[in-house]
Design a protein around this nucleic acid. Structure first.
Lengths: 196, 196
DNA sequence: GTCTATAAAGAGATAGAC
DNA sequence: GTCTATCTCTTTATAGAC
């Protein structure tokens, strides 16, 4: 239920500008997207874009914060839960898939960072912290005997999130699969493999 | 055993220029890497770089061809083998991990493409063709009852190669794991999961 | 195989009017 | 909230000498 009625092109607020910018960043890559291209997409002049965000990098910063905030929220939720380490790990994987699908453009942008600027490096550091926390959870589950121990916890975490993160490369919300079915498939492969 | 003795800075051949260029592309991203940065890395002037490659895009083209050629070679080998579909699929996964590790910079570049130019789009199309072939193999294995059928073949292929491709984001040849151990872990997760 | 110098275009960003 | 005009810097690429 949008409060703002669908208006014509002009009259953007910050959030709308950001959403369209992130779409362009993902389509062309952040570096390959010029403020001119952005302005074109918005149907605005370049300086109108600068009215909403002081710089291209500030657009990036705002977008990355959305993706990171959502992922970090999953860890917060998981930490507040009862249950075995394995149960909490399953919760994290399941919720991470949902976050990826629900905030697809923002997480996509995050996952493609190179670390060229301080803003990017700060975001990469937050992401590494997320990975460290999940790795610790994997290790806990291994120590509790709830997860095979013949694979290094760091490698296991990276393969798990390699699988999950790759979803941003192909999942399209319009497609046949919904987030729940996708999460179920990811959990199934993570837990039992493909019986290959 | 290098035929060419380690010389000083100047006197590059095409291959050496390409190798150093690809390293820079992966470090900063292709679009964010200027010919000036490249020249700096090589200890050359910009126009010396243009002596070896007619354009930045030709550097990209040559690099992508190396990565794609190696991956396509895996399919060719697999097609020539005896054995069940599942055995050939395992072969493809195992060899793909080895290719990723052995041609890490070239495959890394390939996996980060956005498709902004004809050169990039052609490479993406070759990559999609690879994925289609692997998906067909997954489906064959499912039809033969050698692989669980409750997960769509396309989804299964994407999760498998999501896991494999993510290796380029963290694997470093200097590190503790060798390619063989890594391939074993990938196959283990793909086949039986983490017993989570 | 390398250099200096330079052309031509495009980038991010700002000034100031409406 | 948007515009036109402009500044300044960087970009890809070329010309032509050594």
């Amino acid at each position: 239920m949008p409060v703002s009625p669908r208006r014509g092109r002009p009259g953007y607020d910050r959030e709308e500008v950001l959403e369209i910018a992130v779409r362009a960043f993902n389509e062309f890559g952040y570096d390959a997207t010029s403020m001119g291209t952005l302005a074109e997409r918005l149907g605005l002049s370049k300086s109108a874009v600068y009215h909403h965000f002081a710089s291209k990098e500030q657009l990036l910063d705002a977008a990355l914060d959305q993706g990171l905030g959502a992922l970090e929220g999953v860890l917060t939720e998981a930490g507040a839960r009862e249950g075995t380490p394995a149960a909490r790990l399953r919760f994290v994987l399941d919720r991470a898939v949902h976050v990826l699908v629900e905030r697809l453009p923002y997480v996509t942008l995050l996952l493609r960072l190179r670390g060229n600027t301080p803003v990017e490096r700060a975001a990469l550091e937050r992401r590494r912290e997320f990975d460290r926390a999940v790795t610790a959870l994997v290790r806990e589950a291994q120590d509790a005997g709830e997860l095979r121990s013949d694979i290094d916890a760091r490698v296991a975490e990276r393969l798990l999130f390699g699988m999950i993160n790759s979803i941003v490369e192909w999942y399209r919300p319009e497609g046949p699969e919904d987030a729940g079915a996708l999460a179920r498939d990811v959990l199934a492969v993570a837990a039992d493999g493909l019986s290959l």
